[in-house]
Design a protein around this nucleic acid. Structure first.
Lengths: 332, 332
DNA sequence: ATGAAAGCGCTAACAC
DNA sequence: GTGTTAGCGCTTTCAT
């Protein structure tokens, strides 16, 4: 690998002059510019970004933390972030946490180590205080997440309202026995807490019962959804729910899968409400009624906010496009 | 930010001793170990990976190039690669090319600049010679891709054979007028060339006709598939194909979508063969008959091969799990 | 306008 | 076992 030294030697100039050329410093004579260009071409030289970063500390990399890239919600979110980041010449380093606190810390440490210059967290595992403390090293933006009692900038949709509307939609369609899935646990703060609040609000408002048999915690995958359905249909008919509000289309598809296999009819035997409006949910055996998340806007605004923060500038998040909407199809 | 110097000063030791501790050098007295630990905690010290990389040149980052992370084939492939990379403590830097040669070059340049220590290319755009030349800087492994006339290690499945079997399957099911989709163009080398060869071989063997109206080039997305279907059903009935072999489930879903919308029946009006066996293809309105790709094995073997190359060791790819298999469902 | 020289934070001989 | 020292490739004063 040719270094700046080699270029300087070949062009018969000092290292500093070459460095200035590289950094587009004004006032370098045309003659020397040409000599440098030639030397660089001859030696096939590329600056070592490692050395540049070491010295100047201004890298151009942002990190994204997602729980699982195979979840289309996240892959589309990453896609949106990357498209926006590219505009400002940032590269993107993606890491999956698999809900593992340790992996999250590894990424946060990269902030400290200047591997990344900012981080968008689309999933959070560790304690709010711990995460907050890392802001000392570089900006962090929470995307589609919210942390209480600490101050970390975020861009979010109104998950409480979205869920509230979704449940209300179900009730108005005359479903009264509503099962509910959440990725978290009901007790602990975090994961889906706001959605659960929206769920409760709608139920209370419509004076409907809660039944602990209808609440499913820590469900994430299609397989989890499948297992939830299995449990539901094992319930005696009189206490079996007539609709299920899932926390993602992936989970909803698991429920659907079980019902198809057992020859149950959607929505007659059980209505299914998805969440995310993922691609292909309109072409399923029963097209899914679901809640659309504004992924594009979420990714774009988070990125704009983060890059502004990196450049120590202000940015007002445009909230106009961050609305959740119900997509009505056949499963409800 | 505290540096190794600060730690040394605080612990009242030399920089080297601290460095040795950091690098798990044997034989450091327990007393000093403790002093170093305390100093590190007190100063909240983390080594700068930039400096470490500059000095030792042994970063721990591998790059992955995919065309679009939103394509489940790639997100699952990335997932498999990441899981394997983690075992050897490598982090993973993902970049999307969007079939853009320029983005690809940007990633290749990162090889030069030591940002990444190896690259897995799950998609290739530029000229074989250009890509080959970058091996000078760090190892490159092609995953699910093949380049002629140059020598770049790769791990692949037999796409020709897979397609040949797929088309033969169609013919044996008594479909004789087979439409064919490819991501590339028929003339130029690259993109789907081997699959096209498999297609041709099966047709010739079974003495079936080619019709240029049945060939669709440069189709990638669900929307492309939708448009292909539209064209097919505009054809006069006597020259309309009775089956379509698509190049991905995404495309197949587009075809399905159009047919549902227009009230055509799958497979009676047109049989659809997918490619990839993506999640949820079994729960579609018409469950998709498709070709399963061994994504797990592809990712795992590519990563093992790349890391071996980085460490200048030999590795023999385990080909036993790299087989394409037909998944028979309802669309054929 | 250009060059010399002092580091950035770390590792790795080499010496003791 | 531990300290001293010379860089890694680059940027950035400070001279000239």
């Amino acid at each position: 690998m040719a270094t700046i030294k080699d270029v300087a030697k070949t062009a018969n100039l000092s290292i500093s002059t070459v460095s200035r050329y590289l950094n587009k410093h004004p006032y370098i004579s045309e003659d020397k510019k040409k000599r440098i260009k030639e030397a660089m071409k001859k030696l096939n030289y590329t600056p070592s970004s490692i050395a540049t970063q070491l010295r100047s500390k201004k890298g151009k990399m942002i990190g994204i933390l997602v729980s699982r890239i195979t979840n289309p919600f996240f892959s589309y979110l990453v896609d949106a972030i990357e498209k926006q980041a590219k505009i400002d010449n940032y590269n993107v380093l993606i890491m999956q946490t698999y809900d593992d606190k340790y992996a999250e810390i590894k990424m946060l440490e990269m902030l400290k180590q200047h591997v990344i210059n900012g981080l968008i967290m689309c999933s959070v595992e560790g304690s709010p205080q711990m995460i907050e403390s890392y802001q000392e090293f570089a900006p962090i933006v929470l995307c589609n997440e919210q942390l209480e009692q600490v101050s970390i900038p975020n861009v979010i949709t109104d998950q409480l309202e979205g869920t509230y509307q979704g449940i209300k939609f179900l009730i108005e369609k005359n479903y009264k026995k509503i099962a509910y899935c959440t990725g978290g646990t009901l007790n602990i703060e975090g994961h889906g807490k706001l959605r659960t609040e929206g769920f409760e609000r709608a139920l209370i408002e419509k004076k409907l019962d809660f039944k602990k048999e209808w609440i499913f915690q820590e469900v994430h995958t299609t397989k989890d959804g499948y297992d939830v359905a299995k449990k539901i249909f094992k319930l005696p008919k009189n206490i079996r729910p007539d609709a299920i509000f899932t926390n993602s289309d992936e989970v909803a598809i698991g429920v659907l899968e079980y019902m198809i296999k057992q020859n149950f009819i959607v929505p007659d035997d059980l209505a299914i409400m998805g969440f995310d409006n993922q691609p292909f949910t309109s072409v399923l055996a029963t097209p899914l009624t679901t809640i659309n998340q504004p992924i594009e806007a979420l990714g774009k605004e988070s990125t704009k906010l983060l890059i502004s923060l990196i450049n120590k500038k202000l940015y007002n998040v445009d909230k106009s496009k961050l609305k959740l909407t119900i997509i009505q199809r056949k499963s409800v």
